[in-house]
Nucleic acid binder design. Structure first.
Length: 258
DNA sequence: TACCTATGTACAC
DNA sequence: TGTACCTAGGTAT
């Protein structure tokens, strides 16, 4: 919608007024994402860096932009359409050098063709930190969040408390390969569905259930409900500051509880 | 109208 | 580990 075109930038809410002025009237030359970070390049060595965080949203449309509603941090308007950004964790203008600093602190992104899971593995293999924490550490793996953490560990039968050094290369490779598939599918469909065809409510003869986040999942936010595979109650605990969910039967704990 | 929750991160201690 | 950031939508009062 904006690539190669001159765009208008404004901050109806006012909090990004100075930044918007740096971009206003410039041409969008490229756009890229690394993990949860969006990088939109403008002419003049200016890069818009956006991280949606936990609240942020983008609203977009074709044609003439409507009057802004709510707290619109940044509005971009081009010939073909408009985009409104609300509530981001980060919204700033960087130069290419600052972008490199940002990228250097991010780990392998399962959605990127240039990702090297070997780098992540070297970090994982030498730490006692558990895999449930490592999967949310964006300097190890960039992109997965709380839903993918819970779901990929369930799909691979890995207890979230397994320490990095005890995970083993094969299990790490299985987790990585699954993330690549799941996240690509998420991009394609715009939602997070992780339930295999043989476990869908239709296949199992259960009523359909879609989580509030909009996708079908095995354990995420299903605390106390029966596991879709074995029927045991799904457990929950806080790990790395976020609500974690797992099935204690399908994800055996290898000698430790909790 | 108040309160709670959420696909996240940084910083103080 | 706790808290601030900061927004919208849902539920309770």
């Amino acid at each position: 919608m904006f690539g190669g075109r001159r765009v208008g930038a404004s901050s109806p809410q006012g909090r990004f007024a100075a930044g918007a002025r740096l971009l206003d009237g410039r041409v969008v030359v490229d756009a890229d994402a690394h993990g949860k970070h969006l990088l939109v390049g403008f002419d003049g060595d200016r890069v818009l860096h956006v991280h949606l965080g936990i609240y942020g949203t983008y609203g977009m449309g074709a044609g003439v932009a409507p009057a802004p509603t709510g707290a619109v941090r940044l509005r971009l308007v081009g010939e073909a359409g408009w985009a409104d950004l609300r509530g981001p964790n980060v919204c700033e203008v960087l130069d290419r050098g600052e972008v490199k600093v940002l990228r250097d602190r991010l780990g392998a992104d399962p959605l990127r063709a240039d990702a090297d899971p070997e780098v992540a593995w070297r970090r994982i293999a030498r730490t006692r930190t558990c895999v449930g924490v490592l999967l949310l550490d964006q300097s190890v793996v960039a992109g997965p969040g709380n839903i993918y953490r819970a779901e990929v560990l369930f799909r691979q039968g890995v207890h979230p408390g397994v320490q990095g050094h005890a995970l083993g290369r094969r299990r790490w490779e299985a987790i990585w390969d699954d993330l690549v598939v799941l996240m690509a599918e998420g991009v394609r469909t715009g939602r997070i569905d992780t339930v295999r065809p043989e476990h869908t409510p239709e296949a199992m003869g259960r009523p359909p259930r879609v989580d509030d986040h909009g996708g079908e999942v095995y354990v995420y936010r299903r605390a106390g409900l029966p596991c879709l595979v074995c029927g045991h109650g799904v457990r929950t605990a806080v790990l790395a500051g976020r609500n974690l969910f797992w099935c204690p039967v399908c994800q055996p704990s290898e000698g430790h509880e909790g």
